[in-house]
Design a protein around this nucleic acid. Structure first.
Lengths: 247, 247
DNA sequence: ATCCCGGAAAGTGTTTACAGTTTCCTCTGA
DNA sequence: TCAGAGGAAACTGTAAACACTTTCCGGGAT
């Protein structure tokens, strides 16, 4: 098809000066599409298990429940499909995805590569302030282990990894890592980890951090990749354990 | 009240069957949403430069041109946003993205990591048939160089990389690599490469292939990452050259 | 009892309609 | 001449309506 567009209006997005306060009043003036809100809420519902794997996202029901029309709900569903949280089947709807173990392993592998990349780059460019942040986090994780605060450990652990990605300076990698990690949450419903695992993990964190602070990019990369591999192994072990507990 | 119905003339905003033939054959049963078709077509228009960076995707114009309503066009625009080809701004629309050079470098870096990962795994699992495919492709690229067939070289080159990702066996990585490579096309409008570059590249291909066939995963990974780095350098050099040519 | 054949109900895909925002152009006044 | 107000046109965001598909259910034949 020839595709005749009316006229070549090559307009680039001009910056308005007034949108310095985007979230001034979300009720009177929308700053982002409704579909984005819906997507966030659906994502939360999926990741916390309210919407379980295999379940269908009923457009009309969700639209009523969320007080919007089907349009934004559909938009949100398609967005979640792109991030891998749901699968859409023609004429059947969107279904919460269940992550196969093999697929999870693939993602772990990619995450390991990205983590290694970021660690190496971080070793080359880390600032004093950033170094301090890492140090504090490792210490905080130690403290969480001592206090048996699993929830706290996991929060800091996630942040620690995210920070290294950020310190690596590769924005694309940072975003990708965050997305893949989110996708892994589909599988990791509960935190299976056990105290020994946390101690092991944080020892690896410390070694990695030291390599980064030393500026040893090659070693940082190796340690980061090893940490990812060991983390995957710990995860598999915990999964196996949970499977045994379940049966 | 006279029952004179307004005859369905051209003035009516309702759908007129005869005009602009909406889609090829309404008798065929749809197997995938219209938005997907639209997304593919828009992607093609963006990547081949018909829709230029910074240009806005006018929903109504595109809908008319493609013979669908705004819904699928919106859906396609949002999908392309997720893959990084357009940016959507509230109340302003979707704009073809222009890829910054720094962002492209980030993507190259990630691609290098994924490529290295795949090469290492491919070295461990490659089959005889797969090995043959790689060999044929490297030879074909040599032939293309000899014949000065740049277009052919690039086609096979892209396929060669994609194959290695496939042979690596990590589906997620394969999909990711394809997506990132597509995104890079935003920058690489024309093939800037020069004959010398192609020769260099294929020498690296051959070395990498041999390492894979030998089952030397570590070396394969190193060569793959080196190839990515050198490829990026060649690209930068070509860009610089093109910039000089342009001015 | 089982299979399978309507047919209604439910649900998604798509289009159309409406509301609010942005963009553009004209007109005014200094 | 030009800056700015004001309003119309253009366009996007959202909702509602329409069309088609799938699913579910009951009844009758086997």
């Amino acid at each position: 098809m020839p595709l005749t567009l009316p006229e070549p209006t090559a307009t680039s997005p001009r910056r308005r000066d007034g949108d310095a306060a985007p979230h001034a009043n979300a009720l009177l003036r929308r700053t982002h599409p409704l579909g984005l809100d819906v997507a966030r809420r659906l994502q939360a519902l999926i990741l916390d298990g309210t919407l379980r794997p295999g379940e269908r996202l009923n457009e009309v029901a969700l639209a009523r429940a969320l007080g919007v029309s089907r349009g934004p709900v559909r938009e949100a569903a398609r967005a979640l499909e792109k991030t891998g949280l749901v699968t859409v089947i023609m004429n059947r709807g969107a279904f919460v995805r269940s992550l196969g173990q093999d697929e999870a392993m693939d993602i772990y592998e990619i995450n390991g590569a990205l983590f290694g990349l970021a660690a190496a780059r971080a070793a080359d460019r880390i600032s004093a302030g950033q170094a301090l942040v890492l140090r504090i986090m490792v210490d905080a994780m130690d403290a969480a282990i001592v206090h048996g605060d699993r929830e706290g450990f996991f929060r800091i652990n996630s942040d620690f990894h995210a920070r290294i990605l950020a310190f690596g300076g590769n924005r694309e990698a940072e975003a990708l890592y965050a997305q893949l990690t989110r996708k892994l949450l589909l599988l990791r419903r509960r935190s299976f980890e056990r105290p020994g695992h946390m101690t092991e993990a944080n020892d690896e964190h410390r070694a990695l951090m030291q390599a980064i602070l030393r500026g040893d990019a090659a070693r940082a990369r190796g340690l980061a990749e090893a940490h990812a591999r060991l983390g995957r192994a710990r995860f598999l072990e915990a999964i196996g354990q949970a499977a045994q507990d379940g049966t």
